[in-house]
Each structure stands twice: as structure tokens, then as C-alpha cells.
Design a protein around this nucleic acid. Structure first.
Length: 490
RNA sequence: CGGGGCGUAGCGUAGCCCGGUAUCGCGCCUGCUUUGGGAGCAGGAGGUCGCCGGUUCGAAUCCGGCCGCCCCGACCA
């Protein structure tokens, strides 16, 4: 049936569209355990590229990788009051091992602050041991009620950075720096615009003094928290006795930060860039940037065309114009018994940014037909000196995808000028980002959440705030304490 | 855990009301013809009808219980 081949459209049912896209493009599949999923090679390939880019950025900012264990003594989690309260309900707890009941239950890490600051305490005596700048790539488990592929699963992959500093100012600088790293990554690699800012108390990480986040807008106008960075103050240092002797010879508690992004970003990528034909992967994160589809009729044509396709791939891969280690990622799809059109649809579903069609006519003219995934534009390119042309085209696509996503967000963003009644109507209908004044009262925040499902995503950083700051609170009309960003969220 | 929906071949489904061991499409395998936007024809493989129990000569179908999944709510990256 022809209809089987088409995805549910975004307009019909965004949620169904997302699920179908993830399954059919083979990013992931449901596993037998409710709420957990298998990340398939297509999805893992994107995650690997995310990891590589981020890891380079972490190293460039002075961090080192380490690995801390999966199991944490239950008592550790209880040492920081807010932290236990925040995580206890969603922890998986191991009570038996080796056929016996354990003396003390082990918690499967929902995050690693406790074990890590316990170890930092062991390794730190002097201010000379600071700062400690560490990161780990790991899996974590949070027993969620409602799950969604990539966006919320029982187990997910992430990185968690953990640092210890001698001063509060240094820790604050670190938390802000890493938020900036995330923002750069999301904009430059994911082509996903974000609003950065500080979380209100109700959305703050359990155990943090301040939480900062990057908020992106999905195509259904809902917000996705894509990365967080926490200034932990001395909360964990005090709970785990993480002390050092300062230059004056006095004992002092260290200041900590933690920051993380997860495989949730893959879901964000889908919901930012996907269209009704499938996924669109920004070139910098695409495991395959260019797919070559050979076109032939007769046997002798096949040999000639497939041969030329492989030769072209080898030439493209050999090109070092982007640097010796950043080669063009090219695949030839020479499968037989499948019509070229069918291959086009498949690679479009999977989001490969650029397709090259190579047939006898192209060979005769020493050219190749290119087709962009983002705009569907086709153009004949001369075969001579093709690699730099493709590299440039890929850059254009990357930039275009970011510009489009940003324009889409701006079109769905309202700054000021709304009454609360209008706001409620908006959130009840199409939704979007709304910048408005807030009197700073958590009760108002709770009321809005109750009435509209919308929450304060962040108190935006200066550059995102409106030119003219709102003076009154959206809900109460009282003087505004902050300008905040309201939206419904994932 | 509350509300709604659904479990029949790898996927999507018909059959269920009105009992007689299973329909169709996609996919898969083989062969031939095809191949510049989702190929055609012919042949073929594949099913404990979610699980357990009951009623019956006989259960996908009727009855009871259980399990699982998806969607909507309360919690969260």
C-alpha cells in the first residue's frame, strides 16, 4: 500500500510522527523491558559524533575523563537532604547479589554526584589539588513513569562533568563556561538554537544552588531542556566532607559544579529538523554526509557506473581539504534489485544531508546530480574538483538548517503584550515561547502550571531578554522581578 | 497508579457480535524481466491467534483471571 510508505505527518499527529520516524529510520527500537530502548546503529552513529565533538570541547577546556561505578551505596544518596528527596522515588535499588540479600542495598546511579564527591574528598588535601575537572561518559537509570524514545527512558546515556574548586567564583565561572560549551555545541553542531538562562527554584536540580539550562524549541512549539549545568555550592562538599587546606592554612569546603547532556539530544535533533519525509541530520553530526546512488539499466552500464561510483567515493574520502582527520563521510549504495527512487526515499528517511545520483548520462558529461536533503534542491555538479564543492555545499546546508530552525522558533515566540487570558488561550491552543514579567513568587508559577501546563523554562540570560524589559507580572500585574520564558515542555 | 485503546507471520491488518485451527497488504526467499523518484510477473517460506484456566465434540471467536504494549494525566534529562 502506498500509504504504508508515508509517515504520519507532523500536522496530523506530531507524537505519532516522532515515534514512526524514530522506529522506521532505525534510530532505535523498543526493548523487551518496558520503558527502555535499544539504540540502533543509525542512532548510535549520531550519538557517537555528538560524543566526539563534545569530548573534544571538554578536553579543550581542561577536563579529563574517568569512570565511576554503576552501583552506589544507598546511604550515600541520603547524605545530601535535597538530593535524596529529588531522586529517591526514581531510583532502581539492588537488594540481592550472588544469591544473597545484601547488607546494604545498592542504588543504580541516577546521577553520580554522591560517589564522585566521596572520591574527590579522598583525593583532596590541599588547594594545590584543586581544581579537579572531571567528566565521565556513562549510563544512568531513572525509573520514570512515562517514557518516550530518546526523550525519557529508564536507562539513558549521557556525560556528567564534575568539578571541585577552591572558590565560589571559580565554580560559578565553570558552571557558566560549560553552559556556554553546550550552547556552542547545540548551535554549531546540532544546528539547534537554544535559549540559555537560569532555572527557577522549582526546576532546580536537587542539591544545586543554581541550575542553568539550554532550552530548545521543538516543531510542536514545546520546549526541550537539552542540557543543564549546576553550581552546587558547598552542598555536596559538606555532605561528603570534601575539604582542603587553603593558602592561609585553614580548612575549607570545596565548591562544586556538575553538568550534563544526554541521548535526549538525539530526540531533540529529530524534533528540530525532521520533516514529513523523515529525518534531516545536520552534516556535522551525520555519520554519512554523502550517499552516492549509481543508476544503470544494462549489465555493462552497471559495471561502468558502479565502478565510477566507487572511484568517486575513494577520491572524495582521500580529499584532505577539511584537514587530515576530517574526511568526507561517503557511502555508495550499490544494492541491486532496488530502484533508484526507492533508495532516494530510504536515504531521505534516514536524513543523509546530500545525495549524489550517478548515471551513464552524468558520466558522459563528467558531472553528477546532487540533491540536498534540507531543501530538496537538485543541481548538476561538474565532476572535476568535486570534493571542495561538496564540502562547501555541506557547510551551506548546516548553516541553512540552523537559520531555518531559528526562524521557526522566532515565528513562534511572543514577547510581551499578552494578557493572562490571552496567554492561557495560546497555551491551550498552538503554544509557543512567551517572554513575560514574573513577580518571582513560586505560587504564581505553580498556579500557571496548574492552569495551562506551561512552566517557566528559564530566566533568560541578558542577550535573550527583550529590548524593553516587562515591568509587570503576567499573572498578577504586580511589579515584575524578572523577565521569564514560559512554555510547555517535554 | 487513574482514564482510554490494543495484543492474530518481521510489520500493518480481516475474521470475533453469530464457535468448525486463519484473510489481505507490505516485507522476506527463488527465478525471469526491470532500474534517472517508492518495479512487474510467476513460484515459495513463514502463525503455540499475548499467557493461564474454564465452557464445548470442537475456541482466534464465548466466560474468568493474568501479563504486556501504546496514548492521555500525577514525577522527570
Amino acid at each position: 500500500m502506498a500509504d504504508d510508505k508515508k509517515l504520519t505527518t507532523r500536522a496530523e499527529d506530531f507524537s505519532a510522527w516522532y515515534n514512526e520516524l524514530v522506529l522506521r529510520s532505525e534510530l532505535a527500537d523498543y526493548s523487551p523491558v518496558k520503558g527502555s530502548m535499544v539504540i540502533r546503529p543509525n542512532g548510535y552513529g549520531i550519538w557517537e559524533r555528538m560524543q566526539r565533538a563534545l569530548d573534544d570541547m571538554f578536553k579543550a577546556t581542561g577536563h579529563e575523563n574517568a569512570y565511576f561505578p554503576l552501583f552506589i551505596p544507598e546511604s550515600f544518596l541520603k547524605k545530601e537532604a535535597q538530593h535524596v528527596e529529588g531522586f529517591a522515588p526514581e531510583c532502581a535499588v539492588v537488594t540481592h547479589g550472588g544469591g544473597k540479600k545484601l547488607e546494604e542495598p545498592l542504588v543504580v546511579r541516577p546521577t553520580s554526584e554522591t560517589i564522585i564527591y566521596h572520591m574527590f574528598a579522598k583525593w583532596t588535601q590541599s588547594y594545590r589539588d584543586l581544581p579537579i575537572l572531571m567528566n565521565q561518559w556513562a549510563n544512568v537509570v531513572r525509573w520514570e513513569m512515562r517514557t518516550r524514545l530518546f526523550l525519557r527512558t529508564l536507562e539513558f546515556l549521557w556525560q556528567e562533568g564534575h568539578t571541585a574548586h577552591a572558590t565560589e567564583a571559580e565554580a560559578e565561572e565553570e558552571a557558566r563556561r560549560m553552559l556556554g560549551v553546550y550552547r556552542t555545541f547545540m548551535e554549531e553542531w546540532m544546528a539547534m538554537p537554544v535559549v540559555t538562562g537560569q532555572k527557577t527554584d522549582s526546576e532546580r536540580f536537587a542539591g544545586a544552588v543554581r541550575t542553568y539550562s539550554c532550552e530548545a524549541m521543538m516543531q510542536d512549539r514545546k520546549a526541550l531542556q537539552a542540557g543543564t549545568s549546576h553550581h552546587l555550592g558547598q552542598n555536596f562538599a559538606k555532605a561528603f566532607d570534601l575539604k582542603f587546606q587553603n593558602e592561609e592554612g585553614e580548612m575549607a569546603f570545596a565548591w562544586n559544579t556538575s553538568w550534563g547532556v544526554s541521548t535526549r539530544m538525539v530526540g531533540g535533533l529529530v524534533m528540530t529538523h525532521g520533516d514529513d519525509n523523515g529525518l534531516r541530520v545536520p552534516p556535522k553530526l551525520a555519520p554519512i554526509e554523502v550517499v552516492i546512488v549509481p543508476i544503470f539499466r544494462k549489465d555493462e552500464e552497471r559495471d561502468r557506473v558502479v565502478g565510477a561510483a566507487h572511484k568517486l567515493r575513494d577520491e572524495l574520502q582521500a580529499w584532505t581539504g577539511r584537514g587530515a582527520t576530517d574526511r568526507l563521510r561517503v557511502k555508495v549504495d550499490a544494492r541491486e534489485g532496488m530502484k533508484p527512487g526507492a533508495k532516494y526515499y530510504e536515504w531521505e528517511l534516514r536524513g543523509v544531508p546530500l545525495r549524489l545520483e550517478l548515471g551513464p548520462r552524468d558520466l558522459d558529461q563528467q558531472s553528477v546530480m546532487s540533491a540536498r536533503r534540507d531543501t530538496k534542491e537538485k543541481a548538476a555538479l561538474p565532476m572535476a574538483d568535486l570534493a571542495p564543492q561538496l564540502a562547501k555545499l555541506l557547510e551551506t546546508i548546516q548553516a541553512q538548517m540552523f537559520a531555518d530552525a531559528k526562524a521557526r522558533r522566532e515565528a513562534a515566540t511572543i514577547r510581551g503584550g499578552l494578557t493572562y487570558a490571552q496567554f492561557r488561550e495560546l497555551m491551550d491552543g498552538e503554544g509557543g515561547f512567551v517572554y513575560a514579567g514574573w513577580n518571582g513568587d513560586p505560587a504564581v508559577e505553580a498556579q500557571v502550571k496548574e492552569e495551562t501546563k506551561a512552566t517557566i523554562r528559564v530566566i533568560p540570560d541578558a542577550e535573550f531578554r527583550s529590548p524593553i524589559a516587562p515591568t509587570t507580572c503576567l499573572v498578577t500585574g504586580q511589579p515584575a522581578k524578572h523577565e521569564v520564558l514560559w512554555a510547555k515542555a517535554y
